[in-house]
Amino acid sequence: MALGAAARRAARPILVAGLALSVAACGGSGGKGGLFGLGPSEHDKRPVNERRESTIWDLFSNRDTSNQQVAVNRYLWNASLDVLNFLPIQSVDPFTGVIVTGYGTPPGGGRSYRATVRISDPALDARSLKLSLQGAGGSAVAPDTVRAVEDAILTRARQLRVRDGQL
């Protein structure tokens, strides 16, 4: 039993030294800054979205990503859901601005449609809205129909914006 305790005591300094060497090797700045240098390393000077690698020190940095903003115009988003409310929603992703619907028939219409909407910019602009319509069986939809639905979404988005401006 005494031999086991002595072996554990002898192994403890080896483990501590190995851990210290492992942590020291994670910096990778080569004395040009960073943890033990005079200033931030080149890695730390780049914006977060341009970093190519991460280190163990990134775990302890004070970069809070919980406040990321969604880059989708909320008026276009809500207007798309309002105008296409007759279509069953299959998936939505407000972070990428994509709404995918299933097939549905518009009120007063006889043809079934499916829509995919992508809102690519936070601006309330026609260029921010991309709409794809498909008929039953994946058949093509007339460009005039697509343009009419886009116009309806843009008109509804402007109405929502005006209504919010009057609050």
Results as ranks from 00 to 15, higher is better:
residue 122 P to A: 04
residue 122 P to Q: 05
residue 147 R to P: 02
residue 83 V to F: 07
residue 162 V to A: 15
residue 75 Y to M: 02
residue 107 P to N: 10
residue 126 A to Q: 00
residue 33 G to H: 04
residue 129 L to D: 07
residue 153 I to V: 12
residue 70 V to A: 09
residue 153 I to Q: 04
residue 143 P to S: 07
residue 156 R to N: 11
residue 167 L to C: 03
residue 160 L to I: 06
residue 45 K to L: 14
residue 27 G to I: 00
residue 89 I to C: 05
residue 64 D to Y: 03
residue 19 L to I: 14
residue 149 V to Y: 15
residue 134 Q to P: 03
residue 69 Q to A: 10
residue 84 L to D: 01
residue 117 V to P: 03
residue 140 A to G: 09
residue 148 A to I: 03
residue 64 D to S: 03
residue 19 L to H: 02
residue 128 S to N: 06
residue 74 R to C: 03
residue 40 P to T: 09
residue 4 G to W: 13
residue 149 V to H: 01
residue 120 S to N: 14
residue 15 L to F: 12
residue 79 A to W: 05
residue 1 M to F: 12
residue 11 A to G: 10
residue 8 R to M: 15
residue 137 G to N: 11
residue 96 T to Y: 08
residue 9 R to Q: 09
residue 115 A to H: 05
residue 80 S to K: 02
residue 137 G to K: 05
residue 65 T to W: 10
residue 131 L to I: 08
residue 134 Q to G: 07
residue 98 V to G: 04
residue 146 V to C: 04
residue 68 Q to F: 11
residue 59 L to A: 14
residue 2 A to F: 14
residue 13 P to H: 01
residue 155 T to H: 13
residue 148 A to T: 10
residue 91 S to K: 13
residue 16 V to R: 11
residue 2 A to Y: 13
residue 80 S to P: 04
residue 98 V to P: 06
residue 24 A to M: 02
residue 11 A to M: 11
residue 27 G to M: 01
residue 73 N to T: 06
residue 131 L to F: 05
residue 9 R to I: 08
residue 38 L to Q: 15
residue 6 A to R: 13
residue 18 G to T: 12
residue 145 T to S: 12
residue 25 A to E: 00
residue 114 R to L: 11
residue 81 L to M: 00
residue 5 A to Q: 14
residue 47 P to C: 04
residue 134 Q to D: 13
residue 119 I to P: 05
residue 6 A to K: 11
residue 59 L to V: 14
residue 95 F to E: 15
residue 35 L to V: 13
residue 84 L to T: 03
residue 36 F to L: 15
residue 61 S to L: 00
residue 38 L to H: 14
residue 121 D to Q: 10
residue 109 G to K: 08
residue 45 K to H: 05
residue 60 F to A: 10
residue 24 A to N: 00
residue 88 P to Q: 01
residue 65 T to H: 11
residue 33 G to I: 02
residue 155 T to S: 15
residue 72 V to S: 04
residue 100 V to P: 06
residue 165 G to T: 07
residue 52 R to P: 04
residue 50 E to R: 12
residue 156 R to G: 07
residue 136 A to T: 05
residue 19 L to E: 03
residue 70 V to N: 01
residue 143 P to C: 05
residue 166 Q to M: 11
residue 88 P to W: 03
residue 79 A to Q: 01
residue 41 S to L: 06
residue 18 G to M: 13
residue 22 S to Y: 15
residue 137 G to E: 09
residue 140 A to F: 08
residue 118 R to S: 14
residue 83 V to Y: 06
residue 128 S to K: 07
residue 149 V to C: 03
residue 167 L to D: 01
residue 2 A to Q: 15
residue 104 G to W: 00
residue 164 D to L: 06
residue 39 G to V: 08
residue 78 N to Q: 13
residue 34 G to R: 08
residue 146 V to R: 00
residue 33 G to T: 04
residue 34 G to I: 03
residue 95 F to L: 12
residue 60 F to D: 01
residue 165 G to N: 14
residue 102 G to I: 07
residue 73 N to F: 05
residue 151 D to C: 01
residue 32 K to M: 08
residue 50 E to L: 15
residue 75 Y to E: 14
residue 152 A to F: 01
residue 92 V to S: 08
